[in-house]
Computed example of a mutant assay.
Amino acid sequence: MTSLRTRVARVARDYAPHDHRPLDGYLVAMGAFGALAASLAGAAKLSGRPLPDRPAMADVALLSIATHKLSRLVAKDAVTSPLRAPFTRYAEPAGAAELNEEVRDGGSSVRHGIGELITCPFCLAVWVATGLTGGLVLAPRLTRLAATALTATAVSDFLQMAYSIAKEKAEG
């Protein structure tokens, strides 16, 4: 009998014969996401908290901006680089307090898949939004408070950038 790992490796070779694609790492990430979502759903069910028929638009806006900020904070911020360091290598600065990093070559496909996930704010956004949405059900006051801080930070970032652009235009 062929092992699952061997079958996944064969599929990966057939899928991308000229490029390494860590499909088994992606499978692990998808499984972890499924476990996160199932855990949140189970916790919500056990808590007995009612699920809203339709989320309030204010909560959707709050969580959307907070998701944007937290995803970029984890994936790109210089201060969070120690969290990404086991999976990435520093490449170059990427603008205002952000870094470009490359996923480490070698090692396991799982490590590679995690590296791709944690350096991609678009990829992380699904995880962050799921966590914040679950938090809105399980601990709404705390989640709204944390999301408010993240949203205020995101708005501040955009204001800082707008100020810099306006200052450059005024001076030059």
Rank of each mutant, 00 (worst) to 15 (best):
K76L: 13
G34L: 15
M57S: 15
G42Y: 05
K169C: 08
F122S: 09
C120R: 08
S81W: 09
T80N: 07
I165M: 06
A58T: 14
P140T: 01
F33N: 11
S71P: 06
A37F: 14
H20F: 03
A152M: 14
G115W: 01
R72K: 04
G172V: 02
G106H: 03
G34Q: 04
A94N: 13
E101N: 02
A166W: 08
A129K: 00
R111K: 07
Y90E: 13
V128Q: 06
A32I: 08
A38G: 00
S156W: 11
V79Y: 07
C120I: 02
K45C: 05
K76F: 01
A146L: 14
V110K: 02
T133R: 00
A61T: 10
S64N: 03
G25E: 11
N100H: 15
V11G: 04
L117G: 10
R5C: 12
A66E: 08
S71H: 01
D14E: 12
L117M: 13
H112F: 00
T2C: 09
S164N: 05
L51S: 06
A56V: 01
R10Q: 12
L138W: 04
M57C: 05
L150N: 12
V110T: 13
T151P: 07
R7Y: 06
R21P: 02
L70M: 10
G48W: 01
F87V: 05
E101G: 09
L159G: 02
S71G: 08
P22K: 05
L73W: 11
P17V: 08
A29Y: 07
A35S: 09
A29E: 08
L150E: 14
L132E: 07
C123T: 05
A44Q: 12
L27W: 12
